[in-house]
Nucleic acid binder design. Structure first.
Lengths: 233, 233
DNA sequence: TATATCTTTATGTGCATACATAATAATCTG
DNA sequence: CAGATTATTATGTATGCACATAAAGATATA
């Protein structure tokens, strides 16, 4: 057995993945420690560390100090969805993008909204409803609430040329947020805006973002039937 | 200005994030190079590199050799969904899990399936339909095709005690795969199995996994109405 | 002027070493 | 023997250095 040379962390990663896929290292198995692998691969421990860390991030390895590194018994598939600005998403498909502001009001929101956004129950928020179009056809419907205490500049923004979707990314930073994906039946108004039959199944993306302790914006995007959110594994 | 000391890559990362959130570094801005930041933070360049790499992975920074590092003008939100074994997902919510095999046949699949899986149009595949239950109520419907040429051991597996969902993770490794999320209206048979009204909107997860050049399995999971796939940002 | 080549620069990576830290294993102690 | 203490060990990370590499910019060439 030649002390085969894997000098880059990528090649070490590839070899580690090969061994896992070839079931040379089976689910649940404890693999050799970094120092031993470094000797075997003919590289520095830091290089092995970098490779193992990368594999562990995909969920295929479990690492614990002292306990060592083992192949995940039941790897949790991690699908990373890239939620881009809708204009970019549409243009990336080679379609022409367009945007239509439906309504824009400054008003007291329903309790469900002020509750989720932790704004006062009587505090007014900016409400924007807009339609995103691809090749002239409805693509997604945006229903958004904006916390004016956090993004006061939004008050002067008409959102007719630049969508709120895009404007906020440029003008309002967030520290964290939640996102949820679900299937819902389009109600009358929404179905109407999207130009689809009432009760059609549409994919909904609900996002709520925060800046420190304050909510920035809460948005629901409804995509026309047939829309698929895809990614690799 | 004290040469404030950020000695760990996490603290450097936190400081970088702080500057971005505080709009000290605005979207589109070029930030100082690693060497300069290392001097400013009083740490090694490798430490700065580690921190910036981590931030770049979240999409908040764009890094290019020679061009330097700049704050993403329109950060692409990356939502990492962890798709676990359904039993674990249910048990993690504190619910009792159960599993019901509906059918299991070895037959020639529709062309749409053999086409996607790149198996011969006359090649038989193992077809499994099963219902996952949480607290006795339908949770998700699994509709799966398994490539027996890749996982021949599946032939002897009844899938009545252990779900195909779980068994495959233990017994069949995959090198890569695709996953898609969409909203569809449940057809008669599916609605029936899930115990919901026909045409109800259900969230569908379609997954196709491969081992090198060969498809391993193609599966569609339909979740009962109301189901939300959530994660942080 | 258009194109090719060189130079410069910022990030990307490897290595050897040292020490930190968490968690297990071994040992001691009442 | 239970429980507390200590030792051991594998991963985690910081450092300084060297060199690789991509890409922008400068320069040379046809």
């Amino acid at each position: 057995m030649t002390p085969s040379s894997f000098r880059t962390w990528q090649s070490v990663q590839a070899e580690v993945l090969r061994r896992i896929h070839a079931r040379d290292w089976k689910p649940g198995d404890l693999i050799p420690n970094e120092a031993d692998l470094a000797v075997e691969f003919g590289c520095a421990r830091a290089t092995v560390n970098r490779a193992l860390r990368a594999v562990a991030e995909t969920g295929l390895l479990d690492r614990r100090r002292k306990a060592g590194t083992r192949v995940a018994a039941q790897p949790v598939a991690k699908a990373t969805l890239e939620i881009a600005v809708i204009r970019h998403e549409v243009e990336a498909r080679g379609d022409t993008y367009d945007h239509l502001l439906i309504e824009r009001h400054y008003l007291t929101p329903p309790l469900a909204i002020s509750g989720a956004m932790r704004t006062g129950s009587t505090e007014k928020l900016l409400h924007v409803r807009a339609l995103h179009l691809a090749e002239g056809a409805p693509y997604a419907l945006e229903n958004r609430w904006i916390n004016m205490r956090v993004v006061p500049e939004a008050m002067n923004e008409p959102f007719d040329r630049v969508s709120a979707n895009e404007w906020l990314l440029q003008h309002a930073a967030y520290t964290h947020g939640d996102i949820a994906f679900s299937a819902i039946q389009a109600n009358g108004a929404d179905a109407d805006s999207l130009g689809i039959a009432e009760n059609s199944a549409v994919l909904a993306i609900d996002r709520l973002t925060w800046n420190r302790e304050a909510s920035v914006t809460k948005v629901q995007l409804l995509f026309t039937p047939g829309y698929q959110l895809r990614t690799g594994l």
